[in-house]
Design a protein around this nucleic acid. Sequence first.
DNA 1: CCTGTCACG
DNA 2: GACGTACGTGACAGGG
Length: 939
Amino acid sequence: MSFGKGCHLHLIDGSAFIFRAYHALPPLTRKSDGAPIGAVSGFCNMLHRYVEGNTGPDAPTHVAVIFDKGSHTFRNDLYDLYKANREAMPEDLRPQMPLTREATKAFNIACEEIEGYEADDIIATLSCQAREAGGRVTIISSDKDLMQLVGDGVEMLDAMKNIRIGVEGVEAKFGVGPDRVVDVQALAGDSVDNVPGAPGIGIKTAALLINEFGDLETLLDRAEEIKQPKRRQTLIEKREQIELSKKLVTLDCNTPLDFTLDDLEVKDPDPDVLLPFLAKMEFRSLTKRIADRLGAEAPEIDDTPQPGAEAPEEAAPDAPPIDPDKYETVTDAEALAGWIDRIRERGYVAVDTETTGLDEMVVDLVGICLCVDAGTACYIPLAHKAEGESGGLFGNDDLAPGQMPLAEALDLLKPVLEDDSILKIGQNMKYDAKILRRYGIRVAPFDDTMLISYALHAGLHGHGMDALSDRYLGHTPIPIKEIIGTGKSQITFDRVPIDKATRYAAEDADITLRLWQTLKPRLHREQVTTVYETLERPLSPVLATMEMHGIQVDRDTLSRMSNAFSQKMAQLESEIHELAGESFNVGSPKQLGEILFDKMGLEGGKKGKTGAYATGADILEDLATEHDLPARVLDWRQLSKLKSTYTDALQEHINPETGRVHTSYVQTGANTGRLASTDPNLQNIPVRSEEGRRIREAFVAPEGKVLVSLDYSQIELRILAHVAGIEALKQAFHEGQDIHAATASEVFGVPLDEMTPEIRRQAKAINFGVIYGISGFGLARNLRIPRGEAQGFIDRYFEKFPGIREYMDQTTAFAKENLFVQTLFGRKIHTPEIAAKGPRAGFAKRAAINAPIQGTAADIIRRAMIRMPEALAKMPDSAAVKMLLQVHDELIFEVTTEAADDLVGVARGVMEKAADPAVKLDVPLVVDAGQGANWAEAH
DNA sequence: CCTGTCACG
DNA sequence: GACGTACGTGACAGGG
């Protein structure tokens, strides 16, 4: 049928469909190969629903889905900043774009796009043509940029809200009719598309002006007549900018098309095309639903995981060998500009910074290396010192010649490092990002080879550059020790001669780029793209911010405690020596063992592999029932530990500039997905003993602020209840019961109102034991009861909760089959030792049982941390709210006293909903909160 | 550098 | 039948 009077054309804004689908759905992946597929799934559902709804007299006779093609359009030629503030397309969306086109065609709907034009222009052109031919048009979109087309038989339809937008709708939105919409837009501008408009004039004022003067041209010509001085001045001064804005917002009704309206006739979908496509996408329910609808048989869906099925491009096998002699030293702006051109051409660059040390909060930047292609790397020295003796009165602290000024280099590099369209690649990018943040540069977007390796291979090997280079490139990088030396004669990197520095530093960037080329494509094949993109990469900048905040620590409190501990230790030491009858080093397990078991002849002396007696706390505790000496040693050891590890060592970590302690989180430190904290470790500050807990009093909030602590209640047991599907436990959590008491009641048959602390304690030990992969021996040792009795507890536990044993068996079977286990969020933890024979198999089995539980909990708090900055930013006075620390199931914040309660509400909301929407837990997550002037009070 | 010990979740 | 066992970390001190 030829398009004409009585025809009804539907034009669907394809991009709007895609983005709506992408953002509405969790990041689904195709089961067989892990390809991201969420947006395609949503898109197909929307198309299906659209087709379903097209019945009755108002049904279209012609239809097309219109897409954008390419990012450069004629508008960019008019104004190079047009849409310049658009965020880059998410990486897991890009590969789905062609599939949405394929999907449209599979539904037998015309699918149109034209290079150099936006979808809006095609829609405008088709609308004009249809109108001229005497037909009606419905534009399925809610984009206000299309509202200028409304009228004369053209309507818009907001498919989400199911609202039709006619001339009245446009007038309600813009205050003028469709024919004057572009005039209003030209004045008001558009922050989304980066259309400048007239500063200070919004839609309301624009409509007022246009209605007064009739149209934009008249308004601009008669601007002198405007009474408000500011407005008048703007319109006169910014005339050019306003006219440009009008060109940008005006849609082109004369887009050259390579098809006609007649080509868009509505056709029924062909089951032989549509169903195989849906099956290929592995959309089970949609395939079935549509097959039923079409009266066809649903094809088989083969979604068995196919490792390597995709086989994306590997690192170029013809990459040149790694050769440190080939690297360039960049010494001036001209050379650097050349490298920046190369980076812009490439779209990505490996970056590495060289500094004077390892503490990112203290060290200075010495140089930057860049690599754009395997073998093509440079080093930009920026702060190398001239040769000669360092420091001192007569030392030479002058800069070495042949370096461009640091500020000049950073000015040139900043736009590149912050450019949305250029991917920055690093190995442990958090380090470089922290250094560069101190110089006012925020690196984004980025990839991190260390995090990629961790997402791929946690549990298989380390993720440091040396290990990765050895393993994947067969190359051992130049050891830093060869450059800066070791021990007393070690120098800082700024004392390294520049030629030598270039060889070392540029090689790191070269290796990083090659590792990225090798490892990045494997994310898909291993089906851990989502893990990397949602749990690893976005966490890194959050950790960087927390580390840079640091937490205030009061030196005087620590120092007073140190003195008190010293006195008490000296007293204990003399008592111990008196009891022993001789003087010895209490801190030496070897000497202590000899005193206890040889000299005093106590029972229970067991020698370890080194031939020394074991003198651990458990052994001393047994001995302490009979003798004073081991009891005193236990007290001495506790104080010694507190003093050396905490009250003394922590003082050394107070940053003199900030007065705060800045830990470092190692994102790849624990195989399960937990973080590790180092320099200092702030995840093991004492809490269990009264004396130890007082150390937390030294962690304080500044004047006018408080520390707030929020922690997940029993998160691992909740996850166990969920993954093992234990109804009784789930119910106990839903009812907010004391879970250990509930377990005791169930296992030991004691009614809750007759519960004793002792029985509850035993049940608690069993609950923890289960999470760790329980054994009779382990539980017996923990509870200090005979092994047979402990085994009896376990047997009864499994009798009551058979699902737990099933979970354990399934998990170990899965681990044996696959050599890895997984968290609910898809994180893989490799367990190669599960195949081992002997005692190591036991270790591996328990680790395999524990890892999904510990790892899922770790994933959940990571998700909360990643979402936290945005949630906090919405609070009033958000600049005064800081997330400072993470301790596995706890987050510590600093906030003004007045805002503390608000913060608890906001942060608790984020934490309790952190699993959503990716995982629907059968148990609620509960977060407890506390606040106070110091960490002891807040916890 | 390794081992034992002990701090945390 | 024997063996060795709770899971995950990091820091410090002693001793070779």
